[in-house]
C-alpha cells in the first residue's frame, strides 16, 4: 500500500474519494435537514436513555455496511472496504450535524458534554444514511455499469428494512405518531395496516417503478405476497416498534397503544420498504 501513495493512480483515486466525501456531506444534509430542524430531535438528544442511544449508534454501523454492499459511495470489492465506507460516512455525518447544529444555535456554551454529544450522535444516524445513499442517489456514474448481482432473498429483506428505517426515522421522533395512534379507533388501525400491505404489494409488483421487481411468470402471486409483502410488512412493523422504543415513545403505554403507534409509523415505513429498490 505504501508504494501506491506516490503513483498517479492513487492521486486520481484520492481525488475521486474527496469528491465522494463532498457528495456524502451533501447527502447527509439532504436527508438529515428535516431532522436537524426538528425540535423533538434536539430534545431527544439529551433526554433519551443513553443506553438506547448507544445501541442505536452501534446498530447503525452494520446497517451502513449492508447499505454499502447494495449502494454506497463506490463499488466495493471486499467487506472491509464496506466497513471503511461506513466509518467514513459516519464521520462525515457527525461533522455535518455538528456544524449545522452549531450554526443553528442549538449547541451553545453552558450545555453539558452529555447534551452536546447526545444531540450530535442522534443526528449522525440519519445523516449517515443520507451520506451512504448519496452515492446511489446523487452519484455521477451510470447505474447500469455498477449494478451488482441482484440481492438474494435475505438481501431483499434487508433492503426493505433499511427502506422502512429510511422513511420512518423522519417521523418516529415526533409527537404526532403517538397522537395519531390515540385518535384512531381499533378499526381504523386495522384498516391502516391493510392499506399499508396493499400499497406495499402494489408499489413493488404492480406499478412497475424503475427498480421495482417485475413479477416472474412462474411464481404465483400469492407466493410473492406471502414471501415478500407479508414478511416485509412484519419487518416494517419491527422497525417501527424499534424506532418508537429507541425514542422512548412506547414507555408506559398499553400494548394496544404501542401496536397502534407501530401501525401508524409502519405506514410511511411500508412505503419506504416498498420503494427501497428505488431509493437505495
Amino acid at each position: 500500500m505504501s508504494t501506491a501513495i506516490a503513483s498517479p493512480r492513487a492521486f486520481k483515486a484520492d481525488a475521486a474519494f474527496l469528491r465522494g466525501l463532498g457528495r456524502a456531506f451533501a447527502g447527509a444534509l439532504i436527508f438529515a435537514l428535516p431532522m436537524l430542524m426538528t425540535m423533538e430531535m434536539w430534545q431527544l438528544g439529551f433526554y433519551m436513555d443513553p443506553l438506547r442511544l448507544a445501541l442505536l449508534l452501534a446498530l447503525t454501523v452494520p446497517t451502513l455496511v449492508g447499505l454499502s454492499r447494495f449502494g454506497g459511495l463506490r463499488p466495493t470489492a471486499r467487506l472491509r472496504d464496506d466497513v471503511a465506507d461506513a466509518l467514513v460516512v459516519l464521520l462525515v455525518a457527525a461533522l455535518a450535524a455538528a456544524v449545522t447544529l452549531y450554526i443553528f444555535g442549538i449547541l451553545t456554551p453552558g450545555m453539558s458534554a452529555r447534551e452536546i454529544i447526545g444531540k450530535i450522535v442522534l443526528q449522525t444516524v440519519p445523516g449517515s444514511f443520507g451520506a451512504m445513499l448519496a452515492r446511489s442517489q446523487l452519484g455521477g456514474e451510470p447505474e447500469g455499469e455498477r449494478e451488482k448481482d441482484p440481492p438474494t432473498y435475505w438481501g431483499e429483506l434487508f433492503l426493505m428494512g433499511a427502506g422502512a428505517l429510511f422513511l420512518s426515522f423522519n417521523m418516529a421522533p415526533t409527537e404526532e405518531m403517538v397522537l395519531i395512534a390515540y385518535k384512531m379507533s381499533a378499526w381504523q388501525s386495522a384498516a391502516l395496516a391493510l392499506v399499508s400491505l396493499g400499497l406495499m404489494h402494489a408499489f413493488v409488483y404492480t406499478l412497475n417503478f424503475r427498480g421495482g421487481s417485475a413479477r416472474p411468470d412462474h411464481i404465483p402471486a400469492w407466493s410473492l405476497f406471502a414471501r415478500f409483502t407479508l414478511v416485509g410488512y412484519a419487518i416494517v412493523l419491527g422497525v417501527s416498534l424499534f424506532s418508537l422504543w429507541v425514542f422512548g415513545r412506547t414507555d408506559g403505554d398499553s400494548l394496544k397503544e404501542i401496536l397502534s403507534a407501530s401501525i401508524v409509523l409502519g405506514f410511511p415505513g411500508a412505503i419506504g420498504a416498498a420503494s427501497a429498490r428505488l431509493l437505495l
Partner: peptide, 17 residues
C-alpha cells in the same frame, strides 16, 4: 470497477471508527 480502499480513506475511516 472495484476500487480498493486508499490509505487516505483508511485514515478517515479510522477517525470515524
Amino acid at each position: 470497477a472495484l476500487e480498493s480502499t486508499s490509505p487516505l480513506e483508511w485514515v478517515i475511516a479510522a477517525i470515524g471508527g
